[in-house]
């Protein structure tokens, strides 16, 4: 029976290692935090063009991640893109009404994300409000086109 004891121990360690590995994958690799997901509030922003923005993309402020893109849909009233942002609860009532949202790219070929920057309006945005001041994604083709037509007109 001594042999089976060590065997049981081995199997137990094996399973423990598997579970620990899973925890490692959760915390270290996918960057989950042990705290309960903090409460969020939602803002909407309409963009003329979102370029390659994807759901779950980061939302940053001064480079700090403050939320994620929850959903992207076509606004059929204006035929532009309505992006729903999910932001940390701490920011509710902190963002001024004239906050701007811009779609930015990390590096030349990197992923696209939403950058927020606050303005100076004393009134603030609440859950469900819409950010008015937006800046669309830079689309490389359009940029080149502009550049070329400018060259020609010069």
């Amino acid at each position: 029976m001594k042999r089976s004891k060590t065997m049981e121990l081995g199997v137990g360690l094996f399973m423990l290692a598997g579970i620990l590995g899973l925890v490692f994958l959760g915390l270290r690799v996918s960057g989950m935090t042990l705290q309960a997901p903090s409460d969020t509030f939602r803002l909407e922003a309409n963009f003329a063009n979102i370029g390659g923005l994807k759901p779950r993309a980061r939302v940053t402020m001064a480079g700090v991640t403050v939320g994620r893109v929850a959903a992207i849909e076509l606004d059929t009233d204006w035929y532009d893109a309505r992006v729903v942002l999910e932001l940390d609860d701490d920011l509710e009532g902190q963002l001024s009404r004239d906050t701007t949202a811009a779609i930015l790219t990390s590096g030349l070929l990197g992923e696209q994300y939403v950058g927020l920057s606050v303005g100076g309006d004393p009134e603030t945005l609440a859950d469900g409000d819409t950010i008015r001041d937006t800046q669309s994604a830079l689309v490389l083709e359009e940029l080149i086109q502009q550049f070329v037509s400018n060259m020609v007109s010069d």
Partner: peptide, 18 residues
């Protein structure tokens, strides 16, 4: 690590792999 954490989703990537 941070690029990894930003792009790997626990449910979509780890979960589907499992």
């Amino acid at each position: 690590w941070s690029n990894m954490q930003a792009s790997v989703d626990f449910i979509d990537d780890v979960g589907n792999g499992i």
